[in-house]
Design a binder for these strands. Structure first.
Lengths: 209, 209
DNA sequence: CCGGTGACTAAGCGCTTGCTCAGCATGGTG
DNA sequence: CACCATGCTGAGCAAGCGCTTAGTCACCGG
């Protein structure tokens, strides 16, 4: 069925081949779960190490610090999100088709990978400054992709919005917030939710469907 | 112009008259700002006390613990939000008018009182169990008000949605997420944003406007 | 003038935190 | 066989945490 989202996320990330030892992945996974559940500052290095099945000292063989773990998660998560957005936009079709695909996948990702999504969207303030700069640039790129697609739809007469930026904010907001409220007790599957949000967003943008 | 949202929030809250000493209010305000900016766990009692212009020990004259401060902020913030929602729904008019008013005010509040909004929506996990129970009940009430209004609109033929619960989620999501991204550098005023979000939501719900 | 009260502080206690370090087992290489 | 790199642990350090304590001070009714 659904493989764990983090297992999907890391081995597959920029670089492709996975040179990192398996223990580093266990740490990454444990850190994602802990940061998502309790937040970065409430998570101790002992929490992470124990969940990964090792002693606290072993963490520092694979990562320079607790913050370096957060930075890796946040950067990889943002890169994956941007790639998802770009794939959806590049996939062909008119603006309505592209937007529907974008919202479906963006929403489903934030439901399926909600733990990563929480770290990505709600632990920004805990990032070291240099990691934050990288991540902020990725966020800007995501926002620009969405804005550009809406603008293209308006130009083509497919959408009708008074303020492109506000509409783009609303679209990304809906998806991001899914990672806050979605739980494994939610009755809708990520894909169902994606389809429904796709409908809502297209109507919001004034598409005739 | 805009008075500080917290100054609005506390003296005016359940009970009406304000029996608490002024120093307790300073602590509350300092705690809201700190929790919103850094998160509950990254905020120290020294941070709060210093920002309120007193020594760390003085905090414990007014509040039992750091968590008690969070509980007070969260409960007051949730109560204020629920009151706002009920006022908007009770204000008269057809479902379209009520929904527009609700979204306008809900959105504007989450922009104006974004620091309170952040604590309310993103620090739930740090609440002691008993305070969480109170707050969870208030959240459920808010969701029910929104769902009921959408259902009323559907019954009246004013809205057209396939899933009331999903639509209600989307409506509250949009407002809540404002407290995450809105800053004092945002160019839209809270009221402007509210009006624009009101339009978007009505279209999302299939209202003919 | 007294004794009591409420708001406050300086100092610090006990504990947890992120992180370090000396040492140990393992396994591939000469 | 010796050698050493790798991955790891147990013990623990310095710093910072939430919170407490003993005591100070302004003020007030009698």
């Amino acid at each position: 069925m659904t493989s764990t989202p983090i297992a999907d996320l890391w081995p597959v990330l920029p670089g492709g081949a996975d040179s990192r030892p398996e223990a580093a992945h266990r740490l990454l996974r444990a850190a994602v779960e802990s940061f998502a559940e309790r937040g970065f500052h409430a998570t101790t290095t002992r929490d992470i190490a124990t969940a990964a099945g090792m002693s606290p000292a072993a963490l520092y063989i694979h990562y320079q610090s607790k913050a370096a773990l957060l930075a890796e998660i946040s950067q990889a998560g943002h890169a994956a999100t941007l790639a998802l957005v770009r794939d959806a936009v590049a996939g062909g079709g008119d603006p309505v088709v592209r937007m529907r695909r974008l919202v479906e996948q963006f929403t489903a990702w934030h439901a399926r990978a909600r733990t990563v999504g929480r770290v990505v969207n709600y632990e920004l303030h805990a990032l070291p400054e240099d990691a934050y700069a990288v991540v902020a640039a990725l966020r800007l790129d995501i926002e620009r992709e969405v804005s550009a697609l809406i603008a293209a739809g308006v130009a083509a007469g497919a959408f009708e919005v008074s303020e492109v930026r506000t509409a783009a904010r609303a679209v990304t907001s809906l998806g991001i917030d899914v990672s806050r409220w979605y739980t494994d007790r939610s009755t809708e599957t990520p894909e169902e939710l994606g389809r429904r949000y796709g409908e809502l967003v297209l109507r919001m943008l004034g598409a005739r469907i």
